[in-house]
Design a binder for these strands. Structure first.
Length: 273
DNA sequence: CTGGATGCCTGGGAGC
DNA sequence: TGCTCCCAGGCATCCA
């Protein structure tokens, strides 16, 4: 469930740890980590033990923790992933897979019950850029010309295009539905049929919906919490997601639920044409 | 090459 | 109360 606004909120929370040395790392479940070296001592280095966080970078739904050593821990939260800071001695939740302990005693934990997420260890900023080269531009800054380029030659449903991380990075099921509603675009509409005006409205809607959700610190439906373990508030702003069979807030038409690109999709037959 | 279908995984809710 | 079933969805992978 964490999409761009949730990951951005977590990024800002973890940023409070910049400049503080990581004293130790405990891996409780190694199979969720890609690129883990064989030797325990190299593993600790790759997971930033003994180093200090220099910066937190985000592209779409991916969060990179860059250390002063240049090594990078790339976190993908998947469906149920949580990256939290905790006080020393606070109990670890179930399904906590990695625990970093800072020199001040505070901890950072990666927890992911459903294990759709994971961690990738990278050696440098160059390796990160290579990793991110398969992603489209960050959805917070998507321009209509980039969206138009991706839509022009495909007959896919426009919602499938929005969910495609290689087109734009950061939109998941919730904000795809919200953006399409705000732009007045039908989710199943073939992408190449969208007019220039609709593409402009859609790009603007995506930026607006995501920006609003970042300001509300993300949407919490079930699992999502920020780095401090607190839920977000953006779910209060959802206009269509999770509201199937309820009246449209704009026109009163009953919102419909359909399947698009194997995803539950809610839209307003009145407003989205 | 494109794009649709499938499976991974667990917890929560519905239904009996 | 407690059991079973189904659903949620990001992403890799497979296949037409």
């Amino acid at each position: 469930m964490p999409e761009l606004p949730e990951v951005e909120t977590i990024r800002r929370g973890i940023a409070t740890r910049i400049g503080i040395r990581i004293a130790s790392v405990e891996v409780r479940r190694a199979d969720i980590i890609a690129g883990l070296p064989e030797s325990p001592s190299e593993s600790r280095h790759a997971l930033l033990a003994g180093s200090t966080i220099r910066s937190l970078l985000r592209r779409g739904k991916q969060l990179a923790i860059e250390s002063v050593s240049g090594r990078i821990v790339l976190v993908q939260l998947g469906m149920s992933g949580q990256l939290c800071t905790q006080a020393a001695g606070a109990p670890l939740g179930s399904h906590t897979h990695v625990v970093w302990t800072f020199e001040d005693g505070k901890r950072m934990t990666f927890r992911d019950p459903r294990r759709f997420g994971g961690i990738t260890l990278l050696e440098s900023r160059e390796a990160l850029e290579a990793h991110w080269s398969s992603l489209g531009p960050d959805a917070l800054e998507i321009g209509h010309e980039e969206l138009a380029h991706a839509c022009r030659h495909t007959r896919r449903a426009v919602k499938a295009v929005l969910l495609d991380q290689s087109v734009l990075a950061g939109v998941g099921n919730i904000y795809a539905d919200e953006s399409l509603f705000l732009a007045g675009v039908r989710p199943r509409c073939s992408a190449h049929k969208l007019t220039h005006a609709k593409l402009e409205r859609l790009a603007a809607a995506i930026r607006s919906v995501l920006d609003e959700a970042v300001k509300a610190k993300g949407s919490t439906l079930r699992d999502y919490v920020n780095a401090e373990g607190e839920p977000g508030q953006a779910q209060a702003n959802h206009r269509v997601y999770g509201r199937a069979e309820e009246p449209c807030l704009k026109c009163g038409t009953t919102l419909r639920k359909v399947l698009v690109a194997q995803r539950t999709t809610v839209f307003c037959p009145g407003c989205q044409r």
